[in-house]
Amino acid sequence: MYLGRHIEGRPADSGHGGHAGHGAGGRPADEPGGPVEFLVRVDDDDLHVMQNADGTWISVVNHYEKYRTPRAAARAAVRELHGASLVPVTV
């Protein structure tokens, strides 16, 4: 829980040839297999996060600022949301 909201995160099921199972926080993205895909949810809504080549993370809510871990990005999103719910991203 963070500021009254439930946040959770876990590595995505692997599509990257056996790299599943790495721990939370990711690993440098220029290793073979590409960046760790990581799933973050805030109150059961998906927060789209992406890892940078230097190992830091950004989210769709804070897209121009780097965070050390997916958890830090999730917490920053919670602060930014002020209680609002995430909605599915429009592509």
Partner: peptide, 21 residues
Amino acid sequence: ITTHNAFILSDTDTGERTGHR
């Protein structure tokens, strides 16, 4: 906005990248 969104979400440091980074 929708166009920009598509690239924001898909441009990655180790994959295809066009609009950013």
